[in-house]
Amino acid sequence: MAIENRYDFVMLFDVENGNPNGDPDAGNSPRMDAETGHGYITDVCLKRKIRNYVELCKEGEEGYNILIKPDKALNTKFAEAYEKEGLKLKEKGKNTEDVEKARAFMCENYFDVRAFGAVMATGDNPCGIVRGPVQINFARSLSPINIQDVTITRQARTTEDRAETGSTEMGKKSVIPYALYRGEGYISAALAQKVTGLSEEDVELLWTAIVNMFENDHSAARGKMCMRKLYVFKHDSLLGNSPSHVLFDKIQVSLKDETMPPRKFTDYEITVDSEMPDGVTLISKI
C-alpha cells in the first residue's frame, strides 16, 4: 500500500581527511562552488550510496532489485520485464498498454525505481518514464572548504619501462581536512500513490539506508564520513501541511567560533525550532 503522508527531511553529515565526491572536470578533486568556496555533493552520489546499502541488506529479496548498477545494460533489463510479463510490441508504434504494464512491473520489482524514478523509454522494449516520489537536493558544506593536495609515493611500478627509472613514483590525492554538509530531500505521497506505489516499509528502509549509507562505504579516498543527524518532517496529509522551506528553516547550523576553521562536528551548534506548523511532526532519526 502506497504512503499517505508527505515527508521532508534534512541530513547533516561530515567528512574528515577525505574526498566525499570527486569532480571529473577538476582532476577528481572535491567538488567546490567557485564563487563561494563551499563544497557540494551531487544528488547522484548520495542516491548511489542509498542504492548500495539497499542492495547489500536486501539482496535476493523480491521487490528490492536495483536498476541502476553496472551489471547489465538497461535495455536488457527492460526486455526481461516484457518477457516476464508476456508482453510484445506492435509492429508499428508502441503499445501503450504494454508499456504501462512493463512500467508497473519495474516499479514493483526495483526499489530505486519506486523511490527515485527512472527514464526507461529506450530500446525496443520501453518501460516508460517514472517520476520518483523521493527527490534529494545537492548537499552543500556549511563552511567554505579547504582542498589540500597531498603528495604520496607508490612503491609498485606498473610497467618494466617505468620500473627502470626507480623503485618508487610520486602521486597525489586531494582531500578536505574537515567539512560538515547539509542535504535536503522530499517524499511526495501523491506521486507514490499515482505512479510507483512507494510504501511505508520502503520509506523506513530509506531512513535506515540514509543513516547507514557511509558505514559500509568506507575507503581511503573518502576518508572518515559519518551521518550525524537526520531530521524527518512528517505531514498529516497527502499533499502536505506546510511549505518545505518553512520546515527546513527550523534546522539552523552555525559555527561556534568563526575565527577558527572547523575541524570536528562539535565545532558547530545545531538549533532546532521544535514548534511545528499544524499537521507536521518532527522526528529525529539520529
Rank of each mutant, 00 (worst) to 15 (best):
D98T: 12
V203P: 01
I3K: 04
D23L: 09
C127S: 00
D124M: 09
K84R: 06
R228L: 12
M213F: 08
S274H: 05
A115P: 04
E201L: 10
V15F: 00
T271R: 04
L142K: 11
R154V: 04
G93A: 14
L89C: 06
D33I: 08
Y268P: 08
D257W: 14
I187M: 04
A209H: 04
A79E: 06
M11D: 01
G117F: 08
F9H: 03
T259M: 05
A73L: 13
V211T: 03
F116L: 10
S284E: 15
I210F: 01
E275T: 15
A118D: 00
V272Y: 06
G128I: 08
T36K: 13
L87E: 01
R103N: 10
G117S: 09
F214E: 00
P133M: 05
M106R: 07
K229I: 05
M260H: 14
E200L: 08
G22F: 02
C226W: 02
L56A: 15
M1C: 03
P277C: 12
A192D: 08
F116R: 04
T208W: 00
I129M: 15
S199R: 05
R51P: 07
A26M: 13
G123Y: 11
V246E: 13
L46M: 10
L205R: 00
K173H: 04
V10I: 14
A221E: 09
L87D: 03
F78Y: 09
G223W: 02
I176T: 06
D217S: 11
A118R: 04
G197A: 11
E275S: 14
A81K: 08
P24D: 15
S188K: 02
V211H: 01
I286G: 04
D161T: 13
G117P: 10
T281W: 12
E164W: 15
P243K: 08
F116A: 06
T196I: 06
I286L: 09
Y231F: 15
G171T: 02
K173Y: 02
N109D: 06
V195F: 12
D23A: 12
I251E: 13
E184H: 00
F214P: 00
R182D: 06
R48T: 02
E91Q: 07
Q193P: 03
K77D: 06
P126V: 00
G39F: 01
S29N: 11
